[in-house]
Design a protein around this nucleic acid. Structure first.
Length: 463
RNA sequence: UCCUCCUUAGCUCAGUUGGUUAGAGCACAUGACUGUUAAUCAUGGGGUCCUUGGUUCAAGUCCAAGAGGGGGAGCCA
C-alpha cells in the first residue's frame, strides 16, 4: 500500500477534514503525555507537515517508537492548525511505525551537523533538510538542461563511457580491463599485452564526450551529451571529483560568438529555472549557509557577462598593480588567482575569456588569423572559477593535421575524427559545462562533494 | 602531488606552564507539563583524548612516524 498523497500536495491543500494517508520520516517528536506533535517529511518538498496525535486515540507505545529518523505511516484527516507555525496539520487517527530508528544509534539529530560529518554518512544524507534541498535542485537542473536543449532543437546523443582513444588529453584516465591484475599477459618487450584484453586493445573510462559529439553534430546539427565523466587526476580540492557529470553541446555552423551567446543564454536559463522552480529549497540554503545566495543568482540572470580576450585579460592584470603569486605574462595560462581577480574584483560579474595562446589549449581548437591564438572560451564565475570551457573547433583538415602532429598525437588513432574534416566539414563549436560546478554555484555549497550523492575522490569510493 | 591546519562523549567544541577524579551545550534515558514549533524544566547515564613509538616522576597537553579530515595550490569541468 502506498500513500495517497505527499507533504507537498497537502501543504497546498485546503484543510477540510478530508481523509489522508501519508508516509514519511519523523524529524521531531515533541509534546506531552496527552498530545504529541510529529514533524513528518517525505522528501517531496523542503517543509515537513505537523501530525497531531492525541494519546487517547493513538497507542502510546507506538508514539514512543516514532523517534527522529523512524519511518511512519499515518491515516488521518487534514485540518486547519490550531497552532501558530503552520496553516494545516494532520489529525492522526491511526499511526503505524514502518521502520524504527533506535535513537541511541541513529546518527542524525535534530540539531545541525557539519558537512564533513554528513559526508561520512552519505547514505543518510538524503534525510536531511540540506541534502533534500540540494538533491531536489540537482534533479530540477538535470531536467532543465534536457528541456532547454529539447526546446531549442538539440538532439541528445549518448557518447561511449568506455573509450579506446586517449587523444583528448583532458587528464589521466581510469583503465578498463578484465585482465588478471596479478599476472597480466606480457609482450616480449615487457609491456602488458592488451591485445588479449576484453576489447583487444587498451581501453579507459571517458574523460570527455566531445570528440564523439562532434561526429554527431556533423549529421544532426545541434547535439548535446549529458553523462558521467572520469578523471584519474590526484586532485584534492573542493572543486574536483574523479567521477562527475558533464554537459557538452556541439553545434554545427556556430562560430565562437554564437558559442558564447549560447553558453550565456544556457547558464542564465538554468539559474532562472532554479529560481522559479526551487524557491523554497533555495530560500532554505540561502538562510542556512549563504545569505547572499539569492542576490548572486539574480545578478547572474539579470546582467550580461563581460567578454574579453585573453590578451585584454593579461593587460588588465598587468595594470592592476596587484601582487600575484604566479607572474602574469602573455603566453602563461591564467591561474586561479588571476581569474578570481578578474571576476570578483575587477569586473564583479561573470566573465567570458576568449583568444587564448594556442600553446596552452587543446589541439582541436580553431586557430585564429594571427596564427598564435585559438578560439577558446572559458566562462569564469564568482566563487567557483571556470564553469565552462569551450571553443570553436578547427574544421580545416590540413590545419588540424598540423596541430595533431604538433601535439605528438598519432594520426592513426584519430582517423575517424579527421574524417569529419575530410568530407563535408563545416565551422562548428561547443563547450563543456561541469554539472556539479553548476549545482555548487546555484546551491551555494562550497564543496563539490556536497552536491553529488556519492562523491568519488582520491582514496574515497565508499557507498 | 605540494603547503598548511585539525583529530577529546553519538554531534559541536572547551581543556591554562605537562600535575589530583577530562568538562560544557546539544543528543539520549527517566520524570513533570493538555497545542508544541530544533518545545521547556529537573535528574541521570555516557570517554580507546585518532594509531604506534618516544621524552618525562608524571602526557589529552611535548617530540617522531602513520591514518583520516579541512583549507590553499597545481591539474581541470
Amino acid at each position: 500500500m502506498k500513500p495517497t498523497t505527499n507533504v507537498k500536495q497537502l501543504l497546498k491543500s485546503k484543510a477540510e477534514g478530508q481523509p489522508v494517508t501519508l508516509m514519511g520520516w519523523v524529524r521531531t517528536n515533541r509534546g506531552n503525555k496527552h498530545v504529541r506533535f510529529l514533524a513528518v517529511n517525505d522528501g517531496s518538498c523542503q517543509a515537513s507537515i505537523q501530525v497531531v496525535a492525541e494519546t487517547q486515540g493513538i497507542d502510546a507505545e507506538l508514539l514512543k517508537r516514532a523517534t527522529t529518523g523512524s519511518c511512519v505511516g499515518i491515516q488521518g484527516v487534514l485540518v486547519p492548525s490550531q497552532g501558530q507555525g503552520q496553516a494545516v496539520e494532520i489529525k492522526a487517527q491511526e499511526l503505524r511505525v514502518l521502520g524504527d530508528a533506535d535513537p541511541e544509534e541513529y546518527p542524525l539529530q535534530k540539531k545541525g551537523h557539519s558537512m564533513e560529518f554528513l559526508r561520512e554518512i552519505a547514505h543518510l544524507r538524503p534525510r536531511t533538510n540540506t541534502f533534500g534541498a540540494i538533491f531536489r535542485i540537482r534533479h530540477a537542473l538535470s531536467f532543465a538542461i534536457h528541456k532547454y536543449f529539447n526546446d531549442n532543437g538539440f538532439c541528445y546523443v549518448h557518447t561511449p563511457i568506455i573509450t579506446g582513444s586517449d587523444a583528448e588529453g583532458a587528464g589521466a584516465m581510469f583503465r578498463v580491463s578484465t585482465l588478471d591484475a596479478a599476472k597480466p599477459p606480457m609482450r616480449p618487450d615487457g609491456h602488458v599485452d592488451f591485445s588479449q584484453d576484453f576489447f583487444g586493445k587498451e581501453t579507459n573510462l571517458t574523460v570527455s564526450g566531445q570528440l564523439e559529439a562532434e561526429l554527431a553534430a556533423m549529421g544532426l546539427g545541434l547535439v548535446y551529451t549529458f553523462g558521467p565523466t572520469f578523471r584519474a587526476e590526484n586532485s584534492n580540492t573542493p572543486r574536483h571529483l574523479a567521477e562527475f557529470w558533464m554537459i557538452e553541446p556541439e553545434m554545427a555552423f556556430y562560430d565562437i560568438h554564437d558559442n558564447m551567446d549560447l553558453a550565456e543564454d544556457f547558464l542564465k536559463y538554468l539559474v532562472l529555472y532554479a529560481l522559479e522552480n526551487c524557491a523554497d529549497d533555495l530560500e532554505f540554503l540561502g538562510q542556512m549557509y549563504d545569505k547572499e545566495l539569492l542576490d548572486r543568482l539574480h545578478f547572474v540572470v539579470e546582467n550580461p557577462f563581460r567578454r574579453i580576450t585573453y590578451t585584454e585579460a593579461v593587460e588588465i592584470l598587468l595594470a592592476s598593480g596587484q601582487k600575484f603569486e604566479y607572474p602574469v605574462a602573455w603566453g602563461n595560462d591564467l591561474q586561479a588567482e588571476h581569474e578570481r581577480y578578474l571576476v570578483e574584483k575587477h569586473f564583479q560579474c561573470p566573465v567570458t575569456v576568449t583568444g587564448y595562446p594556442k600553446g596552452i589549449k587543446a589541439f582541436y581548437m580553431k586557430l585564429n588569423e594571427d596564427g598564435r591564438t585559438v578560439r577558446a572560451m572559458d566562462v569564469l564565475f564568482p566563487k567557483i572559477g571556470e564553469i565552462i570551457g569551450g571553443s570553436q573547433r578547427e574544421e580545416d583538415l590540413e590545419t588540424l593535421r598540423g596541430r595533431v602532429a604538433e601535439m605528438g598525437i598519432p594520426e592513426k588513432d584519430m582517423w575517424w575524427y579527421l574524417d569529419t574534416r575530410r568530407w563535408g566539414t563545416c565551422p562548428h563549436s561547443g563547450f563543456g559545462l561541469g554539472f556539479e560546478r553548476l549545482v555548487m554555484f546555484i546551491t551555494g555549497m562550497a564543496n563539490i562533494r556536497d552536491v553529488i550523492p556519492f562523491p568519488r575522490t582520491p582514496k574515497n569510493a565508499e557507498f
